[in-house]
């Protein structure tokens, strides 16, 4: 019988071996060829590019729209998802939110596999897994919406730059904790 550590260490392949998909069944039915590529959750800071959320949902991710503080999305959506088993999550967020999620992800057997800082498109090196293509499509959608929305440098306001990123099941981990 596989232990929890096997699941964490094995990441995506470990899950496949256990018969657990990376995507919800509904998504798999809608797009069987891409079922394992679509991150079940896509985080969008709506002050950056609100259009990304609907675009992610069209591609089969459940979009979480939030503003500024990743705390409640973490508590109510992401942690319960990862507590079941490690599943890919993508996002277009500010750097602070990504920093937290990347560190929290380690305790659940996930790691960052793609990260790009705008201007987009074309600044990141996208390599060809399905999930990354999904992220790329969403990044393109984000780029079309114009960056950054929250900044007004001429007025001297803080202008945090958005990041696009992907967290996926990985090999090493710490014990779970948040």
């Amino acid at each position: 019988m596989a232990s929890r550590r096997d699941v964490l260490i094995g990441g995506g392949s470990g899950l496949a071996a256990l018969g657990l998909g990376l995507a919800p069944a509904g998504i798999a039915a809608a797009a069987p060829s891409a079922a394992r590529a679509v991150p079940p959750l896509f985080l969008v800071d709506r002050t950056i590019a609100p259009e990304v959320g609907p675009a992610a949902e069209r591609l089969g991710s459940a979009a979480i729209s939030y503003s500024g503080d990743i705390g409640m999305p973490w508590l109510d959506r992401i942690e319960p998802l990862w507590r079941r088993y490690p599943q890919a999550v993508a996002g277009v967020t500010y750097g602070g939110a990504f920093f937290c999620l990347e560190r929290l992800a380690r305790s659940y057997g996930l790691a960052c596999t793609f990260r790009s800082c705008p201007p987009l498109p074309g600044s990141g090196q996208l390599v060809g897994t399905g999930a990354e293509e999904v992220a790329a499509a969403l990044l393109t959608a984000s780029a079309r919406s114009g960056w950054p929305r929250a900044a007004n440098p001429a007025a001297g306001e803080a202008a945090d730059r958005p990041l696009a990123w992907l967290l996926q099941p990985a090999g090493n981990h710490q014990p779970r904790g948040n």
Binding site: G68, I70, G71, W74, G96, C100, D160, R161
Partner: peptide, 26 residues
């Protein structure tokens, strides 16, 4: 209110402090 407040003042955990030190124009 939940969108704008400093949550720990109201007994709510947060991670917004990690927006400190991020990339800005300054």
């Amino acid at each position: 209110d939940l969108e704008k407040i400093h949550k720990p003042t109201f007994g709510i955990p947060s991670l917004s402090v990690f927006n400190f030190g991020i990339r800005t124009d300054l």
